[in-house]
C-alpha cells in the first residue's frame, strides 16, 4: 500500500482513515497487534464513539465504502496527504494544507525535483513534498531530534513512500545538508533560518528556490537581510495565507410588511404590522478561525558569477 499508488481494497499493513464526521476522523494502521502504553503487543482494537471494533475486520473492505460499527457507521477512506495532515500524530507543531499548498506551488515543484527540507517535524509537509516529486525526484529531510527522525523514517516506510525520501538526523545549522545532488528547492522550518543561508547557497542549483516558514516577523526580517547580504538571491517575496472554512446553512429572517391594511380605514381597528418569514441559504463563517500561521518567504538562487 502506498499513499500515492492508490489501491481499492484494504490490506493488512495499510493506513486507513476512519471517517466518522468532519470533526471526527482517525488514521488507523491495519495490523493484528499494536503496542500498548507498556510497550507490550496487544490485539489491535479501535475505540470510537460508536463502539469499538477489531481493526483486522477492515481487511478486504473497499476504500470509500461504509464500515459498520456496533452503534453506527463510518467511512473508510484511502489516505491522502491532506487527510494525513488533518489526522497525523503531532510530535511537533505542523504545517497545514493551505501553507503546504502555497509552499509547493511557490517552489515550482514537479516530478523529478530534488528537495531538501529541515526540519522534518511530524512529517506533514514531507508527505506532500514526496507526492509532488514522485516518481523521479527525491526528498532529503533532516531533523536534529533523533527520535523524531527515526519516527518519520518508520512512517514513510509504512506509507510506502521510502523510495523517494531520505531522512537524516542532523543539525543543519552546524553541519549543513550534505546532499550530493544540487537541489531544486530548499525548505526551512526552523527557529533561525538565516543561519543556514550559507549551506543553502552550497546546496541549491542555479535558479533553484529557497522557501522559509517562520511564525514571527523578526525571523523573516533577519532571514531576508541574510539573503540580501549574501548577494546571491533574487525575487524575494514574503506571503501569508489563511483559509476560512464555511458552513452552509439555512437561515430565516422576519420580513416586515409596511403596507397599510385597507380594512383598517373601514373598520377603524388598528391592524398590527404583518410579518413574513423569509428563508434563505447562506455561508456561515466559523466563530473562530486561525488568524496567523506563519510567513512564507521565497527567494531564487542565482550565484553571482561576474562576467568581467
Amino acid at each position: 500500500m502506498s499513499f500515492i499508488e492508490r489501491t481499492s481494497i484494504i490490506k493488512e499493513g495499510d493506513t486507513v482513515i476512519l471517517f466518522l464526521s468532519v470533526s471526527n476522523h482517525y488514521p488507523i494502521e491495519v495490523t493484528k497487534y499494536k503496542k500498548n502504553k507498556n510497550g507490550n503487543f496487544v490485539e489491535n482494537k479501535f475505540q470510537t464513539i460508536y463502539g469499538h471494533f477489531d481493526v483486522m475486520e477492515l481487511v478486504g473492505k473497499k476504500y470509500g465504502t461504509k464500515f459498520h460499527l456496533p452503534r453506527g457507521w463510518a467511512y473508510v477512506l484511502h489516505p491522502t496527504c491532506e487527510l494525513w495532515t488533518k489526522t497525523l500524530p503531532h510530535r511537533t507543531q505542523i504545517i497545514y494544507t493551505p501553507d503546504i499548498s502555497l509552499i509547493i506551488f511557490g517552489l515550482d515543484l514537479a516530478p523529478g525535483s530534488i528537495v531538501i527540507e529541515a526540519g522534518t517535524g511530524s512529517g506533514s509537509l514531507s508527505h506532500a513534498f514526496i507526492r509532488t516529486v514522485y516518481p523521479t525526484g527525491h526528498l532529503y529531510t533532516f531533523d536534529f531530534h533523533e527520535k523524531r527522525a527515526e519516527q518519520a523514517r518508520e512512517e514513510f516506510q509504512k506509507h510506502g513512500l521510502n523510495s523517494w525520501v531520505t531522512v537524516g538526523h542532523r543539525d543543519v545549522i552546524s553541519d549543513g545538508f550534505d546532499v550530493e545532488k544540487p537541489a531544486d528547492a530548499v525548505f526551512l522550518d526552523l527557529p533561525k533560518p538565516w543561519e543556514v543561508v550559507p549551506h543553502v547557497q552550497r546546496s541549491l542549483k542555479r535558479g533553484g528556490k529557497l522557501c522559509t516558514f517562520s511564525p514571527c516577523i523578526e525571523q523573516v526580517q533577519k532571514t531576508v537581510e541574510a539573503l540580501k547580504k549574501s548577494g546571491e538571491f533574487v525575487m524575494l517575496k514574503t506571503q501569508e495565507v489563511l483559509q476560512r472554512s464555511n458552513s452552509i446553512q439555512y437561515r430565516t429572517m422576519t420580513s416586515l410588511d409596511f403596507a397599510l391594511d385597507e380594512s383598517e380605514a373601514s373598520t377603524g381597528k388598528l391592524v398590527p404590522i404583518k410579518k413574513e418569514q423569509c428563508k434563505f441559504r447562506t455561508l456561515i463563517p466559523p466563530t473562530q478561525t486561525a488568524g496567523h500561521t506563519g510567513y512564507i518567504t521565497f527567494a531564487t538562487f542565482v550565484p553571482g558569477v561576474s562576467l568581467s
Binding site: V22, Q221, Q239, Q243, S245
Partner: peptide
Amino acid sequence: VWVKEKGIGANVYLVDNWFRNIQVETERT
C-alpha cells in the same frame, strides 16, 4: 446541497482564502 442530499461525498468543505504579500525591508516591514 446536492452532494449532501445524495450522500455521495464525505469530508466536504467550502472554503475561501485570505492572502497577503508582506513588504520586508529593514525598519520598513
